[in-house]
Computed example of a mutant assay.
Amino acid sequence: MTTDPNHVVLDSSTLKALAHPLRVALLGALRRHGPSTATLLGQRLDISSGSASYHLRQLEKAGLVTDDAGRGNARDRWWRAAHRMTEMDDRDFGDGDAEVVDEYLRSIASAYTRQLEQTVNARATMQPDWRHVMDLSDYLLRVTPDEARTLAMRLHAVVREFRYDRPGNPAPAGAEPVSVVLQILPQPVDEDPS
């Protein structure tokens, strides 16, 4: 379990708060773009400010977003993500949480799909250096559950070497934000058609 204040491990209540695609999108937008108001987030996500405000309050109750005390006034409340990273280990949840875990995972899948589509749509306007490093590779491996866990740990360790979004770890000149999505997806076993 992490003690990093920029990292949250989901428990039952935070999981329930995030088991909604719009809440995942709001939290992702705050992490990606920084503090914002419900109105600005509504414009960014093409939803009403009232809907954004409602879902932000639900995220606040779960401790996932908070007021940005240095901004705002009586009319405009500014929000910021309370953590830079979210982690979930489904082994921490019982059978009674299975539906909520599945809904959360669907919300994450939806957010990844939306982000991928936005990036592919923006590809033509990217600088050539960035356009040429874009990579959408997939590999079909045969591994045991233990090997899959080892693979995930090793990949996460490599990615953490390149995290420049933490205080005291400045990015080199020319660095831009990139999204690295790690997915280890057990594949359904095809039944033999014969």
Rank of each mutant, 00 (worst) to 15 (best):
Y104D: 07
V24M: 14
P170G: 01
G28K: 05
Y112Q: 14
M126G: 00
L30G: 06
R131F: 05
P128C: 08
W130T: 01
E87C: 13
E117A: 15
A98N: 07
R77A: 09
P21W: 00
F93Q: 08
D95P: 04
L15W: 04
W130S: 04
S107K: 11
H132I: 03
P145H: 10
G96S: 13
V120L: 14
E60W: 01
A98W: 10
L26D: 09
P167S: 15
L155W: 11
L182R: 03
A152C: 04
R154C: 00
T2N: 07
A74M: 14
L105K: 07
L185C: 13
T119I: 02
S179K: 12
D67Q: 08
A62L: 08
Y54E: 08
A98T: 08
R80D: 02
A29P: 03
G63Q: 03
I108F: 04
L10N: 01
V159C: 08
Q58A: 14
D135K: 07
E99F: 08
H33S: 14
D67W: 09
G50D: 14
V178G: 12
N73P: 04
T3Y: 11
D138K: 14
R114I: 12
T113D: 13
V158Y: 06
D190M: 13
A81R: 05
Y139H: 14
P177M: 06
E117C: 10
A52F: 01
R123P: 00
E161Y: 03
A122Q: 12
G50K: 06
D165Y: 05
N73C: 08
A124D: 15
A29K: 04
R57H: 14
E176W: 07
T86Y: 02
Q43S: 07
D135L: 09
R71L: 15
N121Q: 10
A17Y: 15
Y139N: 09
Q187F: 05
P177L: 07
T14E: 02
P170Y: 05
H55I: 06
D129Y: 09
D95S: 10
L10D: 01
L18D: 06
R91C: 08
V181K: 06
D90C: 03
V8P: 05
T125Y: 04
D135E: 12
I108N: 03
L185M: 13
G28N: 12
P145A: 15
T37F: 02
P145C: 11
L22A: 02
R123I: 07
R57F: 06
F93T: 02
R114V: 12
L136S: 10
R77G: 06
A52C: 06
L141M: 10
G96V: 10
Y164K: 01
P186G: 09
D102F: 09
H33M: 07
Q58I: 12
Q183P: 01
V120R: 14
H20C: 11
Y164P: 00
V189P: 00
A52M: 02
L27W: 15
T39M: 00
N169F: 03
G28L: 06
S53R: 03
D90I: 03
P177C: 03
A171R: 10
A124F: 06
M1D: 09
T37I: 07
D76H: 11
W130E: 12
G168F: 04
H20M: 07
